[in-house]
C-alpha cells in the first residue's frame, strides 16, 4: 500500500482528501502546516505528498524547498493542491520540484487523474 501525506491547514480539506485517497487505496497521514509535514517526512518519507500552499508557520512552497534538500527528500511525488491558480505560482511550484499541480476546488476525478499521470496509481 502506498503512503500519502496530506498537508493542509483546513481540517475539512484534509478529511475530504483522506476519503478520496483511502478509496484509491492509499495509507494516509496528515499535517496541518509545512513544519509539521517536514517533521513527519524526517520520521518516514511518504510515497506522495498532497500539498497546500498557504498555511501558518511554514507554507507549502517553503516546505517543498526544504524537503528537496533533505536526504531522501527527492523521492516523494509532490502534488500541490491550492487555490493559487495563476501561472506564476504554478511555474514557481514546478521549478522548486513539484510533480503535479491541482487547482482547488478539486474532486475525486481530478485527484485520481492527477495521481494516475504521475504513476502513483
Amino acid at each position: 500500500m502506498k503512503t500519502c501525506l496530506i498537508v493542509d491547514d483546513s481540517k475539512v480539506i484534509r478529511m475530504v482528501a483522506r476519503k478520496i485517497l483511502q478509496e484509491l487505496e492509499f495509507e494516509t497521514s496528515e499535517a496541518a502546516d509545512g513544519q509539521l509535514a517536514l517533521d513527519a517526512c524526517n520520521e518516514s518519507m511518504p510515497d506522495a505528498v498532497l500539498l497546500d500552499w498557504n498555511m501558518p508557520v511554514m507554507d507549502g512552497i517553503t516546505f517543498l524547498r526544504e524537503l528537496r534538500k533533505t536526504a531522501g527528500g527527492d523521492k516523494p511525488i509532490v502534488i500541490f493542491c491550492t487555490t493559487e491558480n495563476d501561472l506564476d505560482h504554478i511555474q514557481e511550484a514546478m521549478t522548486v520540484g513539484a510533480n503535479e499541480y491541482i487547482m482547488k476546488p478539486f474532486d475525486s476525478d481530478i485527484i485520481q487523474a492527477k495521481f494516475q499521470q504521475v504513476g502513483l496509481i
Partner: peptide
Amino acid sequence: SQFEVQRGMPIQLLL
C-alpha cells in the same frame, strides 16, 4: 474551465 482542464491534462502540458 479550470475544473475541466484538471480532468486529465498534466500540468506541464497545460502550461
